[in-house]
Amino acid sequence: MTTAVTGTGVGPLLRGWRERRRLSQLELALRADSSARHISFVETGRSRPSEEMVLRLAEHLEVPVRERNALLLAAGYAPRYSETSLDDPSLGTLRAGIEQLLTGYEPYPAVVVDATYTVLAANRGVTLLMDGLPAHLLTPPLNVMRLTLHPEGLAPRIRNLREWRGHLLAQMERQIALVRSEPLRRLYEEVAAYPLPAAAGPDDREDPHPYPYFALPLRIEHDGRLLSFVSSISTFNTPMDVTVAELAIETLLPADPATVAYLRSL
């Protein structure tokens, strides 16, 4: 038995997420312990899914927490996930843990960003790399992508800029393909349009290095030295809050002994 649903409802949204994940109705049905017929009825508006079904489909479609609230609203249910300011007292324990993590990682750089790469917290290792940047780039809110790729930012100091720029833009492209975020798309269009600085260092191919790297390094000049890092990004498992779901902690791990020795000497 099916129930007619007026308006566009949640069906087209779920179909959009399914197509984005390149799943057939049958594949989604098998994952969600449902039937292809029921998935079809939900997507076309012939059947109204229960709140539990909306959340189950969202889980198997890997829909971001913020968008799960949108699916619930479209289906006629209340949002399930709160969006708490990081300054809220209820997140005090989380903030303290993040600050301890950032401090404990020193002297190596570590930064906390939101879904559009706005800097929420950073340690002294990051401050070291930003030394000497112009004031207009250091005016809050700071943005990691702008700081890195702007021709007056870190870009002229990055020895393998073309490789690193390509890595960052590809990372943003993957995110845009997975989530519906106009702010992220606008940021991508902005930083992708930055010109390559004339003062950029030579490409890695023209500048051989003595150590074999296990991942693409960020090779950046600082105070007359060449430092090399590899990046690692961490997020929170099974978040129940939109703010927490969109937090990411990026750490820069030294990629060669010379970088380790220099940072520890500080």
Rank of each mutant, 00 (worst) to 15 (best):
M145F: 03
T103E: 15
T251N: 09
E206H: 15
R264G: 08
V244F: 08
L178A: 15
L161A: 03
Y188T: 03
A70W: 05
E62F: 06
G16W: 04
L227R: 11
R165E: 08
L196I: 11
W17G: 00
S35C: 03
T251L: 12
E182C: 00
S232G: 12
G9P: 04
P156C: 10
P134E: 11
L149F: 13
T148Q: 12
P156K: 12
R48A: 09
G153V: 05
V10A: 08
E43A: 00
A110I: 01
F41W: 13
H60L: 11
R46G: 11
E163M: 10
N160P: 05
Y77A: 04
I220Q: 13
S181N: 14
A121I: 11
T6P: 06
P64T: 09
R219L: 13
P109L: 02
P156V: 11
P79Y: 01
I249E: 07
L154V: 06
G132D: 09
L26A: 12
E246K: 00
A121G: 13
E51L: 09
T127H: 14
Y188L: 09
L94H: 11
E99W: 08
E83N: 03
M145K: 00
L13D: 03
A248Y: 05
E173R: 15
V111T: 01
M240V: 14
P107R: 14
T127P: 00
Y108V: 05
R225N: 07
R186S: 08
Y105R: 00
L13N: 04
R186H: 09
N237M: 10
L94V: 14
L23A: 05
H209F: 13
V230E: 09
D114S: 05
L142Y: 02
I249V: 15
A115C: 05
H222R: 14
N160V: 10
R56M: 04
W17C: 04
L161Q: 03
L266Y: 04
P239D: 14
D203Y: 01
E190F: 02
P257I: 13
L55H: 05
I158A: 07
L263I: 03
L71Q: 08
A198L: 09
L13E: 06
E206R: 15
E19M: 10
F41V: 01
L227H: 06
R146M: 05
I220C: 12
L161N: 02
L72W: 07
D241G: 10
L184H: 11
D87K: 07
R205Q: 12
P156E: 11
S90C: 12
